[in-house]
Nucleic acid binder design. Structure first.
Length: 585
RNA sequence: GGAUCUGUAGCUCAAUUGGAUAGAGCACUUGGCUUCGAACCAAGGGGUCGGGGGUUCGAGUCCCUCCAGAUCCGCCA
């Protein structure tokens, strides 16, 4: 066995090969290697259970044959046992753990190991995607934060990632915005806080249309003019978009969120006729109540619930642009996979979109990419209902971040009053924003979650402050030695882990590769969060149990090695989640 | 009415997608700093995994059926 990054894959390969040489029907044998409960070992292979069951064989006998056929060097490097109904357990020997830890000494080397996972795959990730002229509020944060983490993770694991912000910059709201801009604008307010004023204009215009039919007509007329290419309205439309994206950019910068493209809905305007034509040509779309719709007869609901691709007034809607977007991502970006992050309320829409796309592509002979609607639940207040301000409005994202930083500053000041204020401010920025982000990522995204300041800013539990504290504490050790954690001088001469605490930590470190594969395969960042939390906890126990800076150079070097690797994994993991890290707090 | 998601310790959440004795944090009880950062660590109590059936070597996880909550269901996205 080579001690490479992904030991589970090495074991899998060895077991497959052993299965063939042991006379098993190798093509049918699936080793099912996974990380094991530490009580049983580092890895376990469960595959013989299924194999034996299907053939009515004795699983333990099969397991014994398999183990006997494993190469000698593998058996030198770990203790292999058969347990229970036929589990094969692999416990790496200390020397093997050391051999794995030594070469994974910086982020580039980790990335080199991980990049095999998605090498050659192009992913288009559609996230954030706010509507023009509305301020970002808490409801937008999950798409942004989870999306950014997924992009970083996939990219680290070798994928070529295209980040696309699919802005809602076209559609019926522009009739109201343009009419309101012309009639209701307050120039002073507009220069003070442009987006705030646009939002006010929109709300006022919206209210006006409801009380006055003449205004509703005027609003519709503005929309028609825009869609027909009226120069004045087009210019206004551009201006509104510019205001909006300028305001979005501030928040994106604050959260370290980046895009390669901002191809909003309007980008697809000239690409819609092809969609109508191809859906009609392939017979997928039919006329119904004056609209062009797609039904899916094989589906219990979508056989009657239409996917409306053209409204009865002839206008397009988001189904049309989403189909055009799918095609553009396939043809222009050559996407192997497309990921869209929106809340779960749009699940029906994306299911219909995907069903339609599959049939359409099959009919036209287009190469079908994989598609994932990465959906997520809502953020709730303490009362269990969607989180709102006291006045009932959505909480603005900037205000939420401000409050997080403020609260973090109070905490840092309380815990580390000796630090200069400027440093406390900087720490508060990292801790506060990190806490909000991490709270979102650490939850299983499919559920709603309850937002609670005390919980997310706590130093106990699965929180950003706890992880950042572990990071700073390790930095502190190296600071004491005036050594860079990456400096080989600190860890030269390290021996294999010996004590229980050392072994436990070393084995926890070994879990990183499978966590990365699980996290990316499921597109669930909370898997990584849980791992980082456990790693930090294991480190804290190790740190309490074993003194690092002891006189014996071999013991000291091996403990420093564990510290350095823990630090590297924590910092790398947090960065993949989109958090900044600290050296002191 | 139909569909999707959710239901796990008093509270907030995990559980490597069918694996071994269901785990954390908060709260509660107790212990640990003249020694590398105690923003920490160690130990303890606390569970009909919403209820009931079923599938199999094995179920919190899959199937059926009830119960509860959230969301969606024709021209918003």
């Amino acid at each position: 066995m080579h001690v490479t990054f992904n030991l589970a894959a090495e074991l899998d390969a060895a077991l497959q090969s052993a299965a063939r040489s042991a006379g098993l029907e190798g093509n049918d044998f699936v080793s099912d290697v996974r990380t094991a409960d530490p009580r049983h070992g580092d890895f376990q292979a469960n595959g013989v259970l299924g194999y034996a069951k299907a053939r009515k064989l004795n699983p333990r006998a099969i397991a014994e044959q398999l183990v006997a056929a494993l190469p000698a060097d593998l058996r030198d490097q770990c203790d292999i046992t058969i347990a229970g109904p036929g589990f094969i357990n692999f416990a790496l020997k200390p020397a093997t753990l050391l051999a794995w830890l030594l070469p994974h000494d910086n982020q580039e080397h980790l990335k080199a190991g991980a990049s095999a996972f998605y090498s050659g795959q192009r992913y288009v990730v559609d996230f954030s995607s706010p509507n023009t002229a509305k301020q970002l509020h808490v409801g937008h944060i999950r798409s942004m934060v989870i999306g950014e983490a997924i992009c970083r993770l996939l990219s680290f694991c070798g994928a070529s990632v295209v980040r696309d912000n699919h802005i809602g910059d076209w559609g019926t709201q522009f009739g109201k915005l343009i009419w309101g801009y012309k009639q209701l604008r307050d120039d002073a307010a507009l220069s003070r806080d442009p987006l705030e004023e646009l939002e006010r204009i929109y709300k006022a215009a919206d209210a006006a249309t409801k009380s006055d039919a003449a205004i509703l007509d005027a609003v519709r007329a503005e929309l028609v003019k825009l869609q027909q290419g009226d120069a004045e309205n087009l210019q206004l439309w551009k201006k509104i978009i510019a205001i909006s994206s300028g305001a979005f950019r501030e928040t994106y910068e604050r959260l370290d969120i980046h895009f390669d493209h901002e191809l909003g809905e309007s980008f697809y305007n000239d690409k819609l006729p092809r969609i109508y034509a191809e859906l009609a040509e392939t017979g997928l779309a039919v006329e119904s109540q004056g609209a062009l719709v797609v039904f899916h007869p094989e589906h219990p609901r979508f056989k009657t619930q239409p996917f409306i691709v053209r409204k009865s007034d002839g206008a397009s809607n988001y189904a049309t642009t989403d189909l055009a977007t799918m095609l553009y991502r396939t043809e222009h970006f050559s996407a192997d996979a497309i990921i869209v992050l929106t809340d779960t309320r749009q699940a029906d829409h994306f299911e219909q979109l995907w069903l339609t796309t599959q049939k359409w592509y099959a009919a036209k002979g287009y190469q079908l990419p994989r598609f994932e609607h990465v959906s997520f639940g809502s953020i709730l207040g303490e009362d269990g209902k969607a989180i709102k301000t006291r006045s009932g409005d959505p909480i603005k994202l900037q205000a939420l971040l401000d409050e997080a930083v403020e609260r973090a500053f109070a905490l840092v000041t309380e815990k580390s009053p000796e630090l200069p204020e400027s440093e406390r401010r900087e720490i508060a920025g990292t801790v506060g924003i990190g806490a909000v982000r991490y709270a979102d990522l650490a939850q299983n995204r499919s559920s709603d979650y309850v937002f609670n300041w005390e919980k997310i800013l706590s130093f106990d539990g699965n929180t950003a402050p706890y992880l950042l504290y572990a990071v700073s504490r390790i930095h502190s050790i190296f600071r004491k030695l005036s050594l860079n954690p990456c400096d080989v001088a600190a860890t030269a001469g390290a021996t294999a882990p010996e004590t229980i605490a050392e072994m436990t930590l070393a084995r926890k470190l070994l879990g990183l590769p499978s966590v990365l594969t699980n996290t990316t395969a499921n597109l669930r960042p909370h898997f990584l969060c849980t791992y980082l939390f456990e790693l930090a906890g294991t480190f804290s126990s190790f740190y309490a149990a074993e003194k690092v800076l002891v006189d014996d150079p071999a013991i000291r070097a091996r403990r420093l090695l564990l510290c350095a690797r823990t630090l590297l994994f924590l910092e790398t993991g947090l960065q993949l989640l989109g958090l900044r890290t600290l050296t002191r707090m």
